[in-house]
């Protein structure tokens, strides 16, 4: 008897295959000039790959809600760090702004 029954071997191989395919896909799409879309596409594929690793290799698919909460918490904090940083950088008046913002900041009466 084990604490947790082992997963089926083929799920690991299927996961591996999916990850390899996604790696090739992301490499191919990166070689195309997708303009503004290139970063979201590359990161989107990375998120899918990460989700596959987390869900199946790290067994989160069948884990307790607590583990999911822990992962959610760390991702939430990372998001807070990145997005709240941007509230500063994206609205500083010497950076490139949508036109109506800067006029307000620069003190035009």
């Amino acid at each position: 008897m084990s604490l947790h029954p082992p997963a089926k071997a083929w799920t690991y191989w299927a996961n591996f295959l999916a990850l390899c395919v996604l790696t090739v896909v992301t490499w191919l799409t990166a070689r195309m000039d997708l303009g503004a879309l290139s970063t979201p596409v590359a990161l989107g594929i990375a998120v899918i790959k990460a989700a596959l690793v987390v869900l199946f290799f790290m067994h989160v698919w069948e884990s307790t809600p607590l583990t999911k909460l822990v992962i959610g918490m760390s991702l939430f904090m990372l998001t807070v760090l990145l997005t709240f940083l941007f509230t500063d950088y994206a609205t500083r008046n010497y950076d490139v702004l949508p036109s109506d913002h800067a006029a307000a900041v620069s003190g035009k009466h």
Partner: peptide, 13 residues
């Protein structure tokens, strides 16, 4: 810079 961007020519710019 992103398409359509403008900048205010203040001292920092």
């Amino acid at each position: 810079v992103a398409p359509g961007a403008t900048v205010l020519a203040d001292e920092n710019y």
